[in-house]
């Protein structure tokens, strides 16, 4: 917990949070900010460069790129969040349970997670799309399931070290239930790790959403997404060489901000200063 509070004081974390704040705002109100209907085709301006009317130009059927980016934010971010949310649910809870529910559950859950980890990401997503239908939710379900082992592993690692912690033993001696121990002693220690993993997983999921939509899985064409735009713009590289720049930059900046935030939490300034403090005391 303290790690989280202290991390926010780092400049890099503040910049990252500011960037992510902008992305969230875009996600929430981007559609209304868009100067044009993202699906409206302006046949008089196809593959146009930036101009007063179209700040970021138009694409191959004359749609306004800025409008599509703004509108696409919501689909891209919501999709990634959906996947990460499912991953959290399917990873963190079994991760905690595997430490505190006994050997049978531990063995079973480990085998399931090992199995999931062996599946290749994109191919599994394609297979799920083929099975459940090609929709964003289906694709994100697949991504979420595949993110679960990551969350499971880090939660287990963070919680496993605490099983033998003396303050956990002390609580056991007071007659505390496992649930109470997880709530009062374990959760706070696991939380920073989970937050870090969520940030990196979110970054990964955004990339996966972008790659999947780039491949045409998840979102059907006219609907705008960052990855989908990148894909279509790449096809017209010779006519509009800077075309993919805008969606690519947006993806890169968001992913970088998430990773920077994760780093800031991991580099805990408290530990280094505390050590110095302890040394002085002695």
């Amino acid at each position: 917990m303290r790690a989280l509070r202290l991390a926010v004081r780092l400049p890099s974390a503040r910049v990252a949070l500011a960037v992510l704040g902008v992305v969230v705002v875009l996600m929430a109100v981007g559609e209304w900010l868009a100067p044009y209907d993202p699906l409206h085709q302006d046949t008089t301006a196809i593959l146009a460069g930036p101009s007063a009317e179209h700040w970021l130009g138009t694409d191959y059927v004359g749609r306004d790129v800025l409008s599509r980016l703004l509108a696409g934010s919501r689909l891209s971010v919501i999709a990634a969040a959906e996947a990460v949310g499912l991953g959290l649910l399917l990873g963190v809870l079994p991760g905690l349970a595997s430490v505190y529910l006994g050997r049978v559950f531990e063995w079973l859950s480990l085998r399931v997670m090992d199995g999931l980890m062996a599946l290749p990401f994109i191919i599994f997503a394609i297979a799920v799309a083929a099975l459940l239908g090609n929709g964003l939710h289906q694709a994100m379900f697949a991504v979420g399931v595949l993110l679960a082992p990551t969350f499971y592993r880090v939660t287990r690692a963070a919680a496993g070290g605490l099983r033998q912690a003396q303050y956990v033993e002390a609580a056991t001696l007071f007659g505390a239930t496992r649930w109470r121990i997880v709530r009062t002693h374990v959760w706070q220690k696991v939380l920073p790790t989970v937050v870090v993993t969520t940030a990196t997983a979110m970054a990964g999921a955004l990339l996966v959403v972008s790659s999947l939509t780039f491949l045409g899985i998840g979102v059907q064409p006219p609907a705008p997404t960052w990855g989908g735009m990148l894909a279509s713009d790449l096809g017209y590289l010779s006519q509009r060489p800077f075309g993919p720049l805008a969606p690519a930059l947006l993806i890169i900046v968001t992913v970088a901000a998430l990773n920077a935030l994760a780093d800031a939490i991991t580099v805990d300034p408290a530990t280094s200063t505390k050590e110095a403090h302890d040394a002085v005391r002695r």
Binding site: M1, R2, A165, Q166, Y167, E169, A170, L173, T184, H185, Q188, K189
Partner: peptide, 16 residues
């Protein structure tokens, strides 16, 4: 029956 552990630092939850 109460047990007081040897290492007080490790037997106190640092977050409480």
């Amino acid at each position: 029956v109460q047990y007081v552990f040897q290492d007080p630092l490790r037997s106190l939850d640092p977050d409480l």
